[in-house]
Amino acid sequence: MTHFVNSTADPIVNVEHLAFSFGEGDLCKQILFDITFNVFPGEIVLLTGPSGSGKTTILTLVGGLRQVKTGALTVLGTDFRTASVADLVRTRRQIGFIFQAHNLLDFLSARDNVAMAMQLHPEVTATESRERVSELLEMVGLKDRMDYYPAKLSGGQRQRVAIARALVGRPQLVLADEPTAALDSHSGREVVELLQRLATDHGAAILMVTHDNRVLNVADRIIEMEDGRIRQPENAL
């Protein structure tokens, strides 16, 4: 890889001996066993593995969407074991989420969907926020469709709006779940390059779940999951 990974800095994501299970008592089903890994600024880490291996659960834990029960998890300097709900919400505002389902608001245009995320960053002026919205939509190739409603956009275009929404707040960490699954190879490639640029230019860390072989070559590291465990020793540490 040509870009710079700062592995001497504090990791953006620090996972140690993380375990997770759903349900209680007899119905308790353990999903994750003894997961340990770090993600450093500027790094692109892929999570792969068969479905049901626990990749998405890791994303929801790192994203602060589920409560950590066993093990240690620190994201952007916040210890998720002890964090209050308000702390979690504050941390989530610094994370860019790209979901498999784009979940755009159907009553807002592409521009407004992206602009809405800027309401989470009141410190940015209205003018700058407008500029960033246009800039990002241009970057994802939707310059001519900014005022279209999601219903008038193709699946790939909607996914790109969702990506713009995730990136407009200049997140330090991007969590992406199959961001290219709904895209053709050309736009899939563009999205990946966009994420790569974000990592290079802004030192953001990217943790991405993917099955897409076409994007494997942008990864700094690949974590392979199987049955809730990490299969191979990590190759870049």
Binding site: G63, L65, V89, R90, R92, R93, I95, F97, F99, A101, N103, L104, L105, D106, M116, A117, Q119, L120, R165, A166
Partner: peptide, 14 residues
């Protein structure tokens, strides 16, 4: 709009 609202919650809306 529940899934959309859940998404808004995920990205940091209270």
């Amino acid at each position: 709009h529940l899934p959309q609202f859940a998404t808004l919650k995920a990205i940091g809306f209270t």
